[in-house]
């Protein structure tokens, strides 16, 4: 038993060394399949991040009239905290703070600062910035803000102007996941089919030898074993190659990508999730190699 296993590995290794051209083809195709899976994994990470980002960004700003006293605003804030299920945070921004924020944000853009200078007074209104836990929670908040007693002090609620955008974003939020999953299914299927076909081709070139091996009395597992293990070799190498490629790409482009993805650091994400990613890749490539090989061999292994 042990000696058979040793021989199966030996044959696999010989096949691996001797079929370099075909092997390269298989590895190339498998690498593409693994690349796709990895991309989808990263895409999932990015989209999760972006969705969260979007959800955090859709806050409601309640602007108060210039003349409203700070205590009144703070009492509205206290009332808002009763919606602790719906609201993540409420932040009070005074007129002075708003001005400071503006200057800080545009400190490198003199045009804005000059414009501010020309106005000659602080044009900003005091506001409350409300972050909801989920865009769908805006309804109860808006109901609260709409009550008559508050209309006298509220200048405007930017929430109402953004309602359409928020609705749209929350529907996109829900749809992105579905898209990701469908896309991964389709691309994954495509990659699997191509890999299977390539492996089938390589086994087809050995079909005479397979029948000869059977004729000298080799058991099916003794014949299958080397092909399966060879396939696993190809899978592991393609996984390593893809990861190396990603690492190099991230090392070069991560900084640029970060600004593109609103501060999402791909290299960090890749490193943090590397183990689970590796598991997915190896399981995917391994299962793909094993199943493709067994399926392709099935045709030639009829006694």
């Amino acid at each position: 038993m042990f000696i058979s296993l040793k021989r199966v590995f030996k044959f696999a290794w010989q096949g691996f060394l001797r079929n370099r051209v075909l092997g390269l083809e298989v590895m190339f195709i498998m690498a593409i399949a693994v690349f796709l899976i990895t991309s989808l994994f990263l895409f999932q990470g990015i989209s999760d991040f972006l969705i969260k980002e979007v959800q955090e960004k859709v806050d409601v700003s309640v602007y108060f009239k210039e003349t409203v006293r700070e205590e009144e605003i703070l009492s509205v804030e206290r009332n808002l905290y009763k919606f602790s299920n719906e609201i993540e945070s409420v932040e009070y921004i005074s007129r002075e703070k708003a001005l400071e924020n503006f200057i800080e944000k545009h400190k490198d853009e003199p045009i804005y600062l000059e414009a501010l200078q020309e106005i000659g007074y602080n044009p900003f209104l005091p506001s409350l910035n409300i972050k909801a836990r989920d865009p769908s929670y805006y309804a109860p908040i808006s109901n609260y803000l709409n009550q008559d007693s508050l209309q006298g002090i509220i200048e405007r609620v930017s929430f109402f102007q953004n309602k359409k955008v928020i609705d749209k974003l929350s529907s996109i939020t829900a749809n992105v996941k579905t898209v990701v999953i469908s896309l991964s299914l389709i691309l994954g299927l495509l990659a699997v089919l191509i890999t299977f076909n390539t492996i089938k081709l390589t086994i087809f070139t050995s079909k005479e030898e397979i029948s000869t091996m059977q004729l000298v009395g080799a058991s099916n597992w003794f014949i299958r074993g080397p092909f399966v293990i060879q396939g696993i070799f190809y899978g592991i190498i393609s996984v390593l190659a893809v990861n190396l490629l990603f690492l190099i790409a991230f090392a070069f482009f991560s900084y640029r990508l970060e600004t593109f993805f609103l501060g999402f650091n791909l290299l960090n994400y890749f490193q943090m999730n590397f183990l689970s990613l590796l598991w997915i890749q190896i399981a995917f490539a391994g299962i793909l190699a094993i199943f493709s090989t067994l399926l392709a061999l099935h045709k030639y292994l009829k006694v």
């Binding site: 001797r18 050995s206 005479e208 029948s211 080799a218 099916n220 006694v303």
Partner: peptide, 24 residues
């Protein structure tokens, strides 16, 4: 089939068309 494989091991065949393992 496993019985047949056992019998095949007891037979040595010189095939007219050789049937060599060309990758070995």
């Amino acid at each position: 089939s496993n019985e047949l494989q056992k019998i095949r091991k007891k037979i040595g065949v010189v095939y007219q068309d050789y049937r060599l393992l060309f990758s070995k």
